[in-house]
Computed example of a mutant assay.
Amino acid sequence: AIDLGTANTVIIHKGRIVLNQPSIIAIDAKTNKVLAVGKQAELMFGKTHDSIKIVRPLRDGVIADFYVAEQMLGAMIQSVLKRSKILPLNLRIVICVPSGCTEVELRAVRDSAEHTGGREIYIIQEPMAAALGAGLNVQAAEGNMIVDIGGGTSEIAVISLGGLVVNKSIRIAGDEFTNDIQNYLLQKYDMKVGAVTAEKIKIAVGCASKDLKDAPGEYLVQGASRHSFLPMSVNLSSNEIVDALDRNIQEIERAMKSALEMTPPEIYVDIMKNGIWLAGGGALLRGLAERFTRSLGIKCNVAENPLMSVVNGAGKALKDLKNMPFLAIN
């Protein structure tokens, strides 16, 4: 099972995570030869010369560069096959996609998986996979709401009887949060930082609310002045990150409210009882669940191991294909 995410690609085999790498590839600009993928390629990010291209082939949760995505996925699968001694001819793959994918985008995902040696390719929508991974009974005659905040998209879905009753996919998620931090530093301190530094800031002091009891301390950021190009340092507080992220968090809140407005009354009552479940890396933002709870008036819960909810759910689907009618087969 594969979670081909904008930020990270995760592969699970027989219930065990066999690969968890950044969705990034380094290629030779002249020959298109693959130089590195995953963590090795990420180490090169922002430090290359003209002969090396660093590419993130996924954007907003879908494949933006088909050829490069195929190369990246193929290299990752081959590394797993070598370590795990799995025969390529026996590959049965469940791969996750955002619920808002177009037919063209779905075909790109299927083709990439096929060309890496998959015998049978199944497609599962990310919110359904996230719900399975969070331990929800998606086939029960009962409504559940899942919000999967990934790297490129936030997937918001109401699920009942094995189907998506309501689903919204918005292209505001972890990558936008990273951009928000870069823009905040640029506007307030005239400091330029790269995406890797902004991601570290988000992990270290990222918060969604200013009233946290266990808020992290200040974080020292080093970078260059936009105008003088001289080195500078800033002690950044968690409250400043709240300000930086607030606009996009509000957008996710609005999308959640919109989904609830479209939810049938009986299912709405189920959600009031069961709460809303958060998955994806964005769910780890400090105080986010509590903020959503205050805003929506419905208890919001963070799934156990939210970073792996989607791929774990895809793994569950792969184990029980006969009882997963919502899977689309290639």
Rank of each mutant, 00 (worst) to 15 (best):
V158M: 13
G152H: 14
I63T: 05
N144C: 15
I12M: 10
L91N: 03
R16P: 06
M76C: 13
A255C: 12
S237N: 10
K192M: 03
I159A: 08
G117E: 08
I249R: 07
R107L: 06
L136K: 04
A208R: 03
I201D: 00
V205W: 06
K168W: 10
I329E: 15
A36I: 08
L278Y: 10
E114S: 14
V37E: 11
Q40F: 12
G133Y: 03
A141E: 15
E142T: 15
I17A: 03
A64V: 14
L260C: 10
S258F: 07
L19M: 08
N305R: 11
P306T: 05
G275H: 01
I77T: 00
A224Y: 02
N8S: 10
L106A: 13
S112L: 02
L230D: 10
D246I: 01
A328D: 12
K322F: 09
T9G: 03
N144H: 15
T153W: 14
A108T: 07
V94H: 13
V138H: 00
R56I: 08
E42I: 09
C300A: 03
A279S: 08
A289Y: 01
K53E: 08
I54K: 01
L35E: 13
V10D: 01
L106N: 07
V269W: 09
E105I: 15
S23A: 13
G117A: 03
I93F: 04
L186C: 04
A129Q: 02
T9D: 06
S295E: 09
P264N: 10
V62P: 08
L236M: 08
I170K: 00
L164N: 15
G15I: 08
S225V: 07
V310D: 06
K213A: 11
S99I: 13
G280V: 12
Q71L: 15
V205K: 06
E126V: 06
I159W: 05
C207R: 15
A195K: 11
G163H: 10
R254Y: 13
Y219P: 00
I252D: 04
A198R: 07
V34K: 06
L185C: 05
G174M: 02
M191C: 10
L185A: 05
